[in-house]
Amino acid sequence: MNNNFVKGSWQEILDWAQNKSINMLHYCTGCGAIELPPTMTSRYDMSRFGIGPAATPRQADLLLVTGYLSTKTLRRLIYTYEQMQAPKFVVGFGSCTINGGMYWDSYNTIKQLDKYLPVEMYIAGCMPRPEAILDGLLKLKKMINNGEADGYQRYQDNLEFYHQNQEAVLGEVQRTQ
């Protein structure tokens, strides 16, 4: 994968196009996923901002980590993240992804998401409400538009840091490249 994301004018157009049409991966990792159907359907309708669900990681740009992450899910999440294509973004829900949240003393959940995956933004709420999710995604669209959402670059640049942390928790992790 080419790592030199040059900031030309062509990149601005792509950023603009990226923020207008985001495919959100249909993967409910934690308990926050119960608020996604109301956000996607008639009442709050995230598709009017061009954000729609995608079935497979290949077609997805946005990975929502909705709440706590058990170690078993973390392994699958890393595989999913690495299957996704370059301009990809990770958004964490609630305090479980920041410092373990309500399950801080659970032996099976990870405490900080951004040690394993580059996170663009966190949305507050122990299960954020649909309005909060939409507000967060709108802010994400602004970040994408002016090029601040560079999580995938950070992941590329310090790959070692992320891989060490992942192996610390999961033991051996299959690597694709």
Partner: peptide, 10 residues
């Protein structure tokens, strides 16, 4: 105690 030595805190 398991969590304190397995994970670092933010």
């Amino acid at each position: 105690e398991f969590v304190n030595d397995q994970y670092e805190w933010r």
